[in-house]
């Protein structure tokens, strides 16, 4: 008798989130990026529809990063000093279809830019680049509560993805996303129970679950990747069995975590046996991203263009 594979059919599906609104949809983006909609675990095409591929968002800051390792700095050169040149490089040379703008400059310790300045920056950015935007705050709750609503308003109707809401600070951002027609990133500290709770709290305020993307918080390869993997897998299995409260697509900050790893940062002089630092970092970012795609990641926020290229090739080969 021929071997027959057991196929699991799911009753639930991951919700579909669109980032970016075109002119016809009330925005000014050249295209929208759709993520989610899976009715099966990653790459199990025989078990259910997988309508949208994972996408890469290039990470861009509003200020020049000071602590990025040489391998990253060299890949962008002087463009890092000017966010507009930086995004131009990403969209024109590297053909980025999605940008993740991190408003690091608003942080009290890194420039303390005002809400007006950041809103102005977003306004200009929207005029200069046509791709959809993810807009992330600086991580300081009090400051983000001033800056993000202003940026949300500046991007009204563009259907951005705003973040990040956390369990102790989600109301201001939710109200802004609701008022201006954006979707939201809900971030939880590698904790499935908090991820679910935060989705419920946000949806209780009136933002549909279908406009939430979960940032499950990840660790890079060797730094907790397997914990993130298991949390994502558990949420995805629940989503496929019909639990809408965790049926959100995932966004993973791959670049941020991978380039923090010792293996990506230390110089060849310190560890001659490890080989060239430039290559190690790219490998670390590539491998972390590849593993997270297997766990169900929908958006990979990445830094090194070579790592992005590797991942694009990987996605193309598998899907």
């Amino acid at each position: 008798m021929a071997l027959e594979l057991m196929l699991e059919k799911s009753s639930g599906a991951v919700s579909i989130v669109q980032i970016g609104a075109t002119k016809e949809e009330g925005g000014s983006r050249s295209h929208g990026v759709k993520i989610g909609g899976q009715k099966a675990l990653p790459f199990l095409f025989a078990e259910g529809a997988i309508p949208h591929k994972p996408v890469v968002a290039y990470e861009v800051w509003d200020i020049a990063p000071t602590d990025w390792p040489d391998a990253l700095i060299n890949s962008y050169g002087n463009a890092l000093k000017d966010p507009f040149s930086w995004v131009q490089l990403c969209t024109e040379k590297y053909k980025a279809e999605l940008l993740c703008i991190k408003l690091q400059g608003a942080h009290p310790d890194f420039g303390n830019k005002s809400a007006e300045e950041e809103a102005g920056f977003i306004c200009q950015l929207l005029k200069k680049v046509p791709v959809p935007l993810i807009i992330l705050g600086c991580g300081d709750d009090a400051k983000d509560n001033l800056v993000l609503p202003a940026c949300s308003e500046a991007a009204k109707g563009e259907r951005c993805l705003l973040g990040s809401a956390v369990q102790d600070n989600y109301k201001t951002l939710t109200a802004a996303a609701l008022a201006d027609g954006h979707s939201m990133v809900a971030e939880s500290p590698i904790d499935i129970n908090i991820a679910k709770q935060l989705n419920i709290l946000i949806s209780d305020m009136g933002l549909p679950l279908e406009r939430i993307v979960i940032n499950p918080t990840i660790g890079a390869l060797g730094y907790g990747l397997e914990y993130a993997y298991s949390i994502m897998e558990r949420a995805r299995l629940a989503a496929l069995s019909g639990d809408k409260a965790v049926a959100s697509p995932f966004i993973c900050t791959v670049g941020q975590e991978a380039w923090r790893a010792k293996e990506a940062r230390v110089s060849e002089n310190e560890f001659p046996a490890w080989g060239a630092q430039a290559e190690r970092g790219i490998i670390w970012e590539t491998v972390t991203a590849a593993a997270l795609i297997q766990a169900g990641a929908d958006i990979l926020v990445m830094r090194h263009p070579q790592a992005v290229e590797n991942i694009h090739r990987y996605i193309k080969e598998l899907i």
Partner: peptide
């Protein structure tokens, strides 16, 4: 059968 969260009763009813 379901993932816990503090509002698990509400969460179930949103299904």
């Amino acid at each position: 059968k379901n993932i816990y969260c503090d509002s698990y009763l509400d969460a179930y009813r949103k299904k």
